[in-house]
Structures are given as structure tokens and as C-alpha cells.
Design a protein around this nucleic acid. Structure first.
Length: 198
DNA sequence: TCATTAAAGTTAT
DNA sequence: ATAACTTTAATGA
């Protein structure tokens, strides 16, 4: 969790509930709030020319949503959509900045978080242009797995659907599925009742 | 090689 | 029950 909940409450944050598939903000909206997920999952996405969904990031408990836009005078370039029922804390932009001025530690944490987001984007950017499907999926899985301690083979259960993996890598689902199958044959992953172990 | 289309089976709500 | 996800196969760029 990036900012403590009590602290957010004490400076004016309010709780907002979103139902699954409800839109939190959409492309083109101005950024007026700092959002932090208490419970639930959220995706940041775009839709390509002919309707294909491109997922930019998946977010879960404790993470903030679209925070980078608060530091700029730009409109959101992405949609934020709840993918489960969500409880989210919302803090008006000006209160958020007061908070940052008051607590240097939070400023530092925010820098860490933004750096982490940037790092993920850099890794995924290289991925999307070149690379065969196996390499793309591997880069994604490597990144996901890097968040856990245990690094032994097959110790990490990919917490994404094949659909989501495809939307994150720009592949079509069928290709993602076929590629994962051949990765299983090549002992790169294991599959246990549809769950991917890496 | 990979996307697209279609069709069918499986899981989750 | 219905929607969402997974899988396989055929076809085409």
C-alpha cells in the first residue's frame, strides 16, 4: 500500500465502491483525484482502431490508479475499469499535493512507484515491437514472477487469464494459448488444471 | 509465421 | 442460464 488509509481519510479522502466492469475514469477525462484501491482489481486499457482491447496495466489492493497524470496538465490517455467489485479511496488533487508537501517520505514512495511503472513500460515497450510470441509471454511472466521471493521453476502461478496475457502482449488469445501449449511441451511452463506455473 | 473466423467445450456468476 | 474464458481447426495474409 502506497499511502496509509487512515492518513488518506484524515486529509479528506472518501470511499467509493465500483461494481465489476464499472468505469472509474475514461480516456479524455481530466485527472482530478488521487485513487487508491482498498480492495479489488482494476485494469487500465485502450481499444485499438477495430475494437481490440489493449491492457496497459492490471492493478490490485493497495495500488494507486493513473497517478502519473496528477503531475501533468494532460488528459487521461487510458480508461480505468474495475474488473472485480472494488472499494477505492478518492482524494481530490489539491489535497493530494498538500499531503506530498507535508510528508517527504510519501513523496519518496511516490517516486519509487512511478519509477516502477516506468520500468514496466520500458520492458513491455521493447517487447511489443519485435519478438516472437514465446519471448513476449516470457517477458511478461518474468516480470510478474519477479514480484515474488521464490524463483524456482514452476513455483509461480500466473494470476492472469490467457485472455489478459494476450491483451497485455498484443497477441490474439488463440496464439497465446497455442504458444503456452508449446512452452509446456518445451518444459518452460507447467499447466495444472488450466493454471500456468512458471 | 500469426491473425482471423467459427464452433464447441468449460468455468464462473 | 448466461456470459466469459479456453481450446481446436481451417483459412488466408
Amino acid at each position: 500500500m502506497i499511502i496509509k488509509e487512515n492518513l488518506l481519510h484524515s486529509v479528506g479522502a472518501t470511499v467509493k465502491q465500483y461494481k465489476s466492469s464499472e468505469i472509474i475514469f475514461r480516456e479524455g477525462d481530466p485527472a482530478t483525484y488521487y485513487y487508491q484501491i482498498v480492495t479489488g482489481e482494476v485494469k487500465l486499457n485502450n481499444y485499438s482502431d477495430e475494437g481490440k482491447e489493449i491492457i496497459q496495466t492490471l492493478l490490485e489492493d493497495g495500488q494507486s490508479i493513473g497517478e502519473s497524470l496528477l503531475f501533468m496538465d494532460k488528459l487521461y490517455p487510458i480508461n480505468a475499469i474495475a474488473i472485480t467489485n472494488c472499494k477505492v479511496l478518492r482524494l481530490p488533487k489539491s489535497n493530494f499535493f498538500d499531503l506530498l508537501k507535508q510528508y517527504p517520505d510519501i513523496c519518496l514512495d511516490m517516486n519509487r512507484l512511478l519509477s516502477q511503472r516506468l520500468y514496466f513500460k520500458l520492458i513491455m515497450a521493447q517487447n511489443l515491437s519485435t519478438q516472437n510470441p514465446t519471448a513476449k509471454l516470457r517477458v511478461l511472466m518474468d516480470y510478474l514472477k519477479s514480484s515474488q521471493e521464490e524463483q524456482a521453476p514452476y513455483s509461480f502461478m500466473i494470476p492472469l487469464t490467457r485472455q489478459q496475457m494476450a491483451s497485455l502482449t498484443g497477441l490474439c488469445v488463440e496464439t497465446a494459448i497455442r504458444t503456452i501449449k508449446t512452452m509446456e511441451r518445451n518444459k518452460i511452463v507447467q499447466i495444472k488444471d488450466r493454471k500456468i506455473l512458471y
